[in-house]
């Protein structure tokens, strides 16, 4: 009970600090994926002319989901440093730091999805009833991102270059994940590798559900969920072990 309460208060505080209590500040969080989408659309959709139908929508949805993952991990790492003082002086469950970062990223994700729905309608794609299944699709996304954030944050306290290494991995990951292209375009021999990345499946399934009003491949989802749970379990274990020493190592 106090755990949930602390998560709520910390998430609210983090949110206010981040967006300096301005609505415009929060809107900026949509301008980031939007500007990214416009640049990528110009390069791939217009100059190279390789986009599929509704390429703008594919891109935007992919970027929004990818950004959730990036935000959760990066903000968790930033947060552990900015909360150094509290960690060293007040006892509280350290998981809250990562969970609060995830809650903030979730608020951004959901609001971005809401704006995305406006885009859908503007592009004359009316979301069907299957798009409601997007909501359970978020669950493996959450689990995977939080697991990765636990793992990275625990290591970051010990090794400070993890932050830079992770930024490089994120850049590579952006191209290695079907964001500017689709999972359907991947040749069969590489598909197995792609399916190891839960984000590939989550982005693919979300596109199928919301944009195409179609059911995604169920086996893919099962694989992605299993990997997400494994990632969460490992991340949580490492974090639990390491967080005992945060007060000394920070």
């Amino acid at each position: 009970m106090t755990y949930i309460n602390l998560l709520k208060e910390m998430a609210i505080a983090d949110f206010k600090i981040r967006y300096k209590r301005s609505m415009l500040g929060f809107l900026w969080s949509f301008l980031k994926p939007l500007s990214m989408m416009l640049v990528l659309y110009f390069v791939f959709g217009v100059l190279l002319n390789i986009g599929t139908d509704n390429y703008v929508l594919y891109l935007l949805l992919g970027i929004i989901i990818w950004n959730f993952f990036v935000e959760t991990t990066i903000v968790s790492m930033d947060s552990i440093m900015s909360k150094k003082n509290i960690i060293q002086k007040v006892p509280f469950p350290k998981e809250i730091i990562v969970l609060s970062a995830a809650m903030n990223a979730l608020a951004v994700l959901l609001s971005n999805i809401a704006i995305f729905l406006v885009f859908l309608i503007a592009f004359n794609v009316l979301p069907g009833h299957k798009s409601l299944l997007f909501i359970p699709t978020i669950i493996p996304l959450l689990i995977f991102s939080i697991g990765a954030a636990y793992f990275l944050t625990a290591l970051y306290v010990k090794f400070r270059d993890i932050y830079h290494i992770w930024n490089v991995v994120i850049q590579l990951g952006f191209w290695a994940t079907p964001i500017i292209y689709t999972l359907q375009e991947i040749p069969g021999k590489y598909l197995g590798i792609y399916l190891m990345n839960p984000l590939a499946t989550i982005i693919n399934s979300s596109r199928e559900l919301i944009i195409n009003n179609a059911y995604p491949e169920m086996t893919y989802i099962i694989i992605a969920t299993a990997i997400s749970i494994a990632a969460y379990y490992i991340g949580k274990k490492v974090y639990e072990k390491q967080s005992q020493y945060f007060a000394e190592e920070l």
Binding site: E9, M10, I12, A13, K16, I17, K20, V90
Partner: peptide, 19 residues
């Protein structure tokens, strides 16, 4: 130590109290 500079005293009271 639990105080966040960008928040008001009241908001900090809720946060610190929650911790």
């Amino acid at each position: 130590v639990g105080f966040q500079d960008d928040l008001t005293a009241k908001e900090n009271t809720y946060l610190y109290g929650a911790i």
